[in-house]
């Protein structure tokens, strides 16, 4: 059942012996110890598990690990660090937006991919780009402010 799969995550190659049908999320969290993507629903309905695959925001909870072979995977840790934060991360700190923070991975990864394509988004475009993401604490106002702030920072 298990198969040898090579994954490129945050610029590092990893060889894994895993069930090819296992969602990428479990490989990242349990096999590689990259716990930034979170399990929220396992159904691609909330976004907590979002990572970038070749620059696109995807839901790792429904992506079989085999589908990530040969792709460039980026997780939150690969997006920015305390020393070199991504503008979206810095903006969320500046806005003091997160509460429990469990969903933040999804918002940051989705917003970061969106801002790569649209540096001057309107309020409506931001809301649309973030549709489908869930935040149970209700921090949407702060997140939307943060996306606007990050957009400005990214010019």
């Amino acid at each position: 059942m298990a198969e040898r799969i090579s994954l490129n995550v945050n610029g590092v190659s990893h060889d894994l012996e895993v069930d090819p049908d296992m969602p990428l999320l479990y490989a990242l969290r349990n096999d590689l110890g990259l716990s930034n993507p979170h399990f929220g629903c396992g159904l691609a309905q909330c976004g907590a598990c979002t990572v970038h695959m070749n620059g696109e925001a995807i839901r790792s909870c429904v992506t079989p690990v085999s589908a990530a072979k040969g792709a460039r995977i980026t997780t939150l840790a690969g997006l920015g660090t305390p020393e070199k934060p991504h503008p979206m991360q810095q903006a969320l700190i500046d806005e003091q937006a997160p509460q429990c923070g469990y969903c933040m991975n999804g918002w940051i990864m989705t917003a970061a991919a969106f801002l790569e394509k649209n540096r001057r988004p309107s309020d409506g475009q931001i809301r649309k780009a973030l549709a489908g993401l869930k935040c149970r604490c209700g921090t949407h106002m702060g997140i939307i402010r943060a996306v606007k702030r990050a957009a400005k920072a990214m010019g």
Binding site: S35, N36, T75, L76, A77, G80, T81, P82, P85, Q89, L92, I93, Q96, A97, P98, G101, M104, N105, I108
Partner: peptide, 10 residues
Amino acid sequence: NDIAGKVFGT
């Protein structure tokens, strides 16, 4: 003081 850890995943 918990926000940075949450947005950097640390």
